[in-house]
Amino acid sequence: MVQINFALKEVNCKIVFYGPGMSGKTTNLEIVHQKAPEENKGELTSISTDGDRTLFFDFMPLDLGNVAGMRTKFQLYTVPGQVYYNSTRKLVLQGVDGVIFVADSDPEKMPENIESYQNLIDNLTEYGKDIRELPHVIQYNKRDLPNAMSVEEMDRQMNKFGVPTFEAVAYTGEGVFPTLKTLAGMVLESIDRMDSRSSKRPAAEAPRTAAPAARGAQPTRTAAPAAQKKPAAAPQRAAAAPATQRAAAAPATRTAPAKAAAAAPATAATAKLKTPAARTPATPARPTTAAQAAPATRRPGMPAPRAAQPAPKKGGGMAMVVGLSVLLIAAAAGVVWFFSSNNLL
């Protein structure tokens, strides 16, 4: 949850590196700590086991400096990746403003990647958050592995919401800053968007769920150096994006994810894909009722605010009737008391 403190003139945001065990979350944070300018970073604190596995979290504050008169700070956390530590992982996710999902490019780790991503969705749901509304990016780490899975395949299996993706070799620092920069930008943009919606232009709120996906295509192509290296990947990613954007933008039309799953060729790999693909739409499907479809349907006519208007009037009328009744009863009681106390009855 973003904290805005007008007294300290500060804005604080929480960013979490999420992903399966040993995928490189702590390494990402260590690189940020090594390379960030001295005046912008705080201490890197780790609560880890003797074997250097994260037990609770790693933490470091990163100061963006003065933004329009407000000192803006990011608190960067990692979670323990091991399945065993889900309760602590969930705690770190509390109040999160943006997530960097660090995936392992080792093909053998793909089931763990998918399981962890699903775990992220589930844990966010427990906090009442929808992943499609939370700024998040995916980093495909360990690109230097000789048997690294292709980016296209990873995209196909993991990037269901068309979010920005980045290739990285975290221990060398490659891809670490572009990932963080994009996510930080998305978080700040979401604060800005929230402000715009609250005060200035209510009509601009409709693309909210679609916005991260729409923005997604841009940084993937511009910020991720590897994406530029592989032009062949671009059309494929672009082709995948509309399907996922459709899924994100129109939660009411459940056919979009189904189409995406059905469109995939029936190979052994898709059998793996099918489980999470079927699972992922299922999670958002839970809240996909009138209430959740609202963000996507607000642009065409903004029915929600209008529908909400008569309600207070109705409530006000009821309150008035109740108030008058209470007054009448009180007056009658007063009259009876007056007469009885003066022995007039």
Binding site: A36, K181, D195, S198
Partner: peptide, 22 residues
Amino acid sequence: GDDPGLGEAYGQDAKKSLDKLF
């Protein structure tokens, strides 16, 4: 009552600050 927000300049300034840091 309503949250006053950070103002329009915040979003524009944030982008510049990110470029500077990263």
